[in-house]
Protein backbone atom coordinates (compact mmCIF):
# COMPACT_ATOMS: atom_id res chain seq x y z
CA UNK A 1 0.00 0.00 0.00
CA UNK A 2 1.27 3.46 -0.89
CA UNK A 3 1.16 5.73 2.09
CA UNK A 4 2.56 9.20 1.49
CA UNK A 5 0.81 11.02 4.34
CA UNK A 6 0.59 10.25 8.00
CA UNK A 7 -1.63 11.52 10.76
CA UNK A 8 0.34 14.00 12.86
CA UNK A 9 -0.69 15.15 16.36
CA UNK A 10 -1.71 18.51 14.87
CA UNK A 11 -3.87 16.98 12.16
CA UNK A 12 -5.40 14.64 14.72
CA UNK A 13 -6.34 17.64 16.87
CA UNK A 14 -7.93 19.28 13.83
CA UNK A 15 -9.85 16.11 13.14
CA UNK A 16 -11.17 16.03 16.71
CA UNK A 17 -12.16 19.69 16.51
CA UNK A 18 -14.15 18.91 13.36
CA UNK A 19 -15.94 16.02 15.03
CA UNK A 20 -17.11 18.06 18.02
CA UNK A 21 -16.36 21.33 19.80
CA UNK A 22 -16.24 19.46 23.10
CA UNK A 23 -12.96 17.53 23.16
CA UNK A 24 -14.32 14.72 25.30
CA UNK A 25 -17.28 14.24 22.97
CA UNK A 26 -14.95 14.47 19.97
CA UNK A 27 -12.73 11.72 21.39
CA UNK A 28 -15.78 9.55 21.95
CA UNK A 29 -17.02 10.17 18.40
CA UNK A 30 -13.59 9.35 17.00
CA UNK A 31 -13.47 6.07 18.90
CA UNK A 32 -17.01 5.22 17.79
CA UNK A 33 -16.27 5.90 14.13
CA UNK A 34 -13.02 3.93 14.24
CA UNK A 35 -14.56 0.92 16.01
CA UNK A 36 -17.51 0.83 13.64
CA UNK A 37 -15.40 1.21 10.51
CA UNK A 38 -13.29 -1.75 11.63
CA UNK A 39 -16.48 -3.75 12.05
CA UNK A 40 -17.76 -2.71 8.62
CA UNK A 41 -14.50 -3.66 6.88
CA UNK A 42 -14.58 -6.97 8.78
CA UNK A 43 -18.16 -7.62 7.69
CA UNK A 44 -17.14 -6.99 4.10
CA UNK A 45 -14.65 -9.82 4.41
CA UNK A 46 -11.59 -7.56 4.55
CA UNK A 47 -8.72 -9.29 6.34
CA UNK A 48 -6.94 -6.01 7.10
CA UNK A 49 -9.86 -4.20 8.68
CA UNK A 50 -7.79 -2.14 11.12
CA UNK A 51 -5.27 -1.07 8.47
CA UNK A 52 -8.01 -0.05 6.06
CA UNK A 53 -9.76 1.88 8.82
CA UNK A 54 -6.60 3.78 9.69
CA UNK A 55 -6.07 4.49 6.01
CA UNK A 56 -9.62 5.89 5.84
CA UNK A 57 -9.01 8.12 8.85
CA UNK A 58 -5.70 9.32 7.43
CA UNK A 59 -7.36 10.27 4.16
CA UNK A 60 -10.19 12.14 5.85
CA UNK A 61 -7.65 14.00 7.95
CA UNK A 62 -5.65 14.88 4.88
CA UNK A 63 -8.74 16.30 3.17
CA UNK A 64 -9.94 18.16 6.23
CA UNK A 65 -8.64 21.63 5.34
CA UNK A 66 -10.51 21.42 2.02
CA UNK A 67 -13.83 20.15 3.31
CA UNK A 68 -14.14 21.58 6.82
CA UNK A 69 -15.91 24.78 5.77
CA UNK A 70 -18.01 23.34 2.99
CA UNK A 71 -19.10 19.88 4.13
CA UNK A 72 -22.41 20.14 5.95
CA UNK A 73 -23.42 16.54 6.74
CA UNK A 74 -22.57 14.32 9.66
CA UNK A 75 -18.80 13.66 9.71
CA UNK A 76 -19.46 9.91 10.06
CA UNK A 77 -21.10 9.92 6.64
CA UNK A 78 -18.03 11.51 5.08
CA UNK A 79 -15.87 8.80 6.65
CA UNK A 80 -18.23 6.24 5.14
CA UNK A 81 -17.76 7.67 1.64
CA UNK A 82 -13.99 7.57 1.99
CA UNK A 83 -14.12 4.04 3.45
CA UNK A 84 -16.01 2.90 0.35
CA UNK A 85 -13.21 4.23 -1.88
CA UNK A 86 -10.55 2.62 0.28
CA UNK A 87 -12.40 -0.68 0.11
CA UNK A 88 -12.74 -0.54 -3.69
CA UNK A 89 -9.00 0.03 -3.99
CA UNK A 90 -8.39 -2.85 -1.59
CA UNK A 91 -10.48 -5.14 -3.80
CA UNK A 92 -8.52 -4.08 -6.90
CA UNK A 93 -5.19 -4.86 -5.32
CA UNK A 94 -3.63 -8.32 -5.19
CA UNK A 95 -5.89 -10.36 -2.94
CA UNK A 96 -4.63 -10.82 0.58
CA UNK A 97 -4.49 -14.46 1.60
CA UNK A 98 -7.05 -15.36 4.24
CA UNK A 99 -5.76 -15.83 7.77
CA UNK A 100 -4.78 -19.30 8.84
CA UNK A 101 -7.71 -21.31 10.18
CA UNK A 102 -7.67 -21.47 13.98
CA UNK A 103 -5.26 -24.03 15.36
CA UNK A 104 -6.81 -26.17 18.04
CA UNK A 105 -4.34 -25.23 20.72
CA UNK A 106 -5.60 -27.10 23.75
CA UNK A 107 -3.26 -25.26 26.11
CA UNK A 108 -4.56 -21.91 24.90
CA UNK A 109 -8.16 -23.11 25.26
CA UNK A 110 -7.45 -24.33 28.79
CA UNK A 111 -5.79 -21.01 29.71
CA UNK A 112 -8.81 -19.11 28.42
CA UNK A 113 -11.15 -21.34 30.36
CA UNK A 114 -9.22 -20.78 33.59
CA UNK A 115 -9.35 -17.05 32.94
CA UNK A 116 -13.09 -17.29 32.35
CA UNK A 117 -13.51 -19.01 35.72
CA UNK A 118 -11.60 -16.17 37.39
CA UNK A 119 -13.57 -13.52 35.53
CA UNK A 120 -16.88 -15.18 36.43
CA UNK A 121 -15.81 -15.07 40.07
CA UNK A 122 -15.24 -11.34 39.77
CA UNK A 123 -18.79 -10.67 38.59
CA UNK A 124 -21.31 -9.41 41.10
CA UNK A 125 -23.48 -12.28 42.39
CA UNK A 126 -26.54 -11.01 40.53
CA UNK A 127 -24.65 -10.64 37.24
CA UNK A 128 -23.16 -14.11 37.63
CA UNK A 129 -26.57 -15.65 38.18
CA UNK A 130 -27.98 -13.67 35.28
CA UNK A 131 -25.30 -15.04 32.94
CA UNK A 132 -25.85 -18.60 34.16
CA UNK A 133 -29.60 -18.36 33.83
CA UNK A 134 -29.60 -16.48 30.54
CA UNK A 135 -27.32 -18.94 28.77
CA UNK A 136 -28.18 -22.21 30.46
CA UNK A 137 -31.24 -23.22 28.46
CA UNK A 138 -29.91 -22.50 25.01
CA UNK A 139 -31.05 -25.84 23.65
CA UNK A 140 -34.34 -26.05 25.48
CA UNK A 141 -37.27 -23.67 25.76
CA UNK A 142 -34.92 -20.73 25.51
CA UNK A 143 -37.42 -18.00 24.62
CA UNK A 144 -39.89 -18.93 27.35
CA UNK A 145 -37.06 -19.25 29.82
CA UNK A 146 -35.71 -15.80 28.99
CA UNK A 147 -39.17 -14.25 29.13
CA UNK A 148 -39.62 -15.68 32.62
CA UNK A 149 -36.22 -14.34 33.62
CA UNK A 150 -37.08 -10.87 32.26
CA UNK A 151 -40.37 -10.94 34.20
CA UNK A 152 -38.56 -11.88 37.39
CA UNK A 153 -36.19 -8.96 36.90
CA UNK A 154 -39.03 -6.62 36.02
CA UNK A 155 -37.49 -5.60 32.72
CA UNK A 156 -38.38 -6.02 29.05
CA UNK A 157 -36.99 -9.03 27.18
CA UNK A 158 -34.86 -6.80 24.98
CA UNK A 159 -33.45 -4.99 28.01
CA UNK A 160 -32.47 -8.41 29.40
CA UNK A 161 -30.86 -9.29 26.08
CA UNK A 162 -28.84 -6.07 26.16
CA UNK A 163 -27.88 -6.59 29.81
CA UNK A 164 -26.70 -10.16 29.15
CA UNK A 165 -24.74 -8.96 26.13
CA UNK A 166 -23.02 -6.23 28.14
CA UNK A 167 -22.01 -8.67 30.86
CA UNK A 168 -20.76 -11.10 28.23
CA UNK A 169 -18.73 -8.32 26.60
CA UNK A 170 -17.17 -7.39 29.95
CA UNK A 171 -16.35 -11.08 30.49
CA UNK A 172 -14.72 -11.34 27.09
CA UNK A 173 -12.61 -8.26 27.81
CA UNK A 174 -11.69 -9.65 31.21
CA UNK A 175 -10.64 -12.99 29.70
CA UNK A 176 -8.55 -11.28 27.00
CA UNK A 177 -6.79 -9.18 29.63
CA UNK A 178 -6.22 -12.21 31.85
CA UNK A 179 -4.78 -14.29 28.98
CA UNK A 180 -2.57 -11.39 27.95
CA UNK A 181 -1.27 -10.94 31.50
CA UNK A 182 -0.65 -14.67 31.86
CA UNK A 183 1.39 -14.68 28.68
CA UNK A 184 3.46 -11.62 29.69
Amino acid sequence: MRKDWVLTPESFEKLLAWLDKDREQAGQKYEDIRRRLIKIFTCRGCYEAEDRTDETIDRVSKKLDEIRDTYTGEPARYFFGVANKVHLEYLRRKPVPPPQPPREDTEQIEREYQCLERCMDRLTPDNRILVLQYYEEEKRAKIDHRKRLADQLGIALNALRIRAHRIRTSLEQCVQKCVHEAAA
Binding site: P102, I109, E112, Y113, L116, E117, M120, P125, D126, I129, L130, V131, L132, Q133, Y135, E136, E137, E138, L149, Q152, L153, G154, R168, L171, E172, V175
Partner: peptide
Protein backbone atom coordinates in the same frame (compact mmCIF):
# COMPACT_ATOMS: atom_id res chain seq x y z
CA UNK B 1 -13.62 -19.93 21.35
CA UNK B 2 -14.96 -17.69 24.08
CA UNK B 3 -18.54 -18.80 23.40
CA UNK B 4 -17.46 -22.47 23.65
CA UNK B 5 -15.78 -21.78 26.99
CA UNK B 6 -18.81 -19.91 28.27
CA UNK B 7 -21.12 -22.73 27.24
CA UNK B 8 -18.87 -25.26 28.97
CA UNK B 9 -18.75 -23.12 32.10
CA UNK B 10 -22.53 -22.67 32.22
CA UNK B 11 -23.09 -26.41 31.70
CA UNK B 12 -20.66 -27.29 34.51
CA UNK B 13 -22.12 -24.66 36.83
CA UNK B 14 -25.69 -25.86 36.36
CA UNK B 15 -24.60 -29.50 36.88
CA UNK B 16 -22.84 -28.51 40.09
CA UNK B 17 -25.79 -26.46 41.30
CA UNK B 18 -28.93 -27.94 39.78
CA UNK B 19 -31.04 -25.81 42.09
CA UNK B 20 -29.91 -22.82 40.05
CA UNK B 21 -32.66 -23.48 37.55
CA UNK B 22 -35.34 -23.18 40.16
CA UNK B 23 -33.70 -20.31 41.96
CA UNK B 24 -34.92 -16.76 41.56
CA UNK B 25 -32.31 -14.24 40.49
CA UNK B 26 -30.69 -12.21 43.23
CA UNK B 27 -32.56 -9.12 42.03
CA UNK B 28 -35.82 -10.66 43.18
Amino acid sequence: RFARSLQKYVTHASQKTPELQAKKPVFS
